[in-house]
Amino acid sequence: MSSLRSYIQRLYLVRCWQEYKLLFFLAIIFIGAVLYGHKSSCEITPALVPGMYAGMEQRTEDDFLVITADNALLDLHHTVDEPRRMMIYSTLSAFYQGVAAGEDPKAPAIRELVRKHPFMKPLSMHAVNAGEDYGRYLPWLLQYIRHSVDKDIRRLGVYQLHVHYDKQNLPVADYRKILYELESPHTK
């Protein structure tokens, strides 16, 4: 019995309760957020960010967005340049999806959420991008790329590169389709 008591006394949460109650409650809130996140499949930074987790999918083809600057491929450093690549390609992908949907792709799901839980409305108003912001994106992209590669780029091209995976599962480029062209100061 005394060994069980000693065991319990050594538990981290028990020690927090005895010596640092604020930390104890923070830990409980964190554990609650983790459990809620798993149950609802919602991200709750920093408790749960499941978007990085592996899925189970075998792709036979893919589409990538490719950028050319003054007709030369925009080729950033592989992997180590991740923050800059995210600012360019991740935002471009979101823009492309938003334009295709005619609004922020999350908007329908958020409207449904607010319909079920009206108290979420004030919070949800800032969860989506306004339609007019999509119109300002491409000029921003040109400006960001200019500053980040430190070149006076006059012409930016955004292409969709279609790739399929052959019998050996290796990628093969099929075609490239122009999506947008920007010429400073105008956008086409």
């Binding site: 919602c42 991200e43 709750i44 930074t45 920093p46 960010v49 978007g51 600012m87 935002t91 979101a94 823009f95 938003g98 999350k106 799901a109 919070l123 949800s124 800032h126 969860a127 989506v128 991008n129 912001d133 999509y134 300002r136 994106y137 921003w140 400006q143 960001y144 500053h147 980040s148």
Partner: peptide
């Protein structure tokens, strides 16, 4: 260095909504 970005992503993460 972000050059006054226009689009942002909150996903369904209440931390970012807040």
């Amino acid at each position: 260095q972000m050059q006054q970005p226009v689009l942002y992503e909150t996903d369904f993460d209440y931390t970012y909504w807040l």
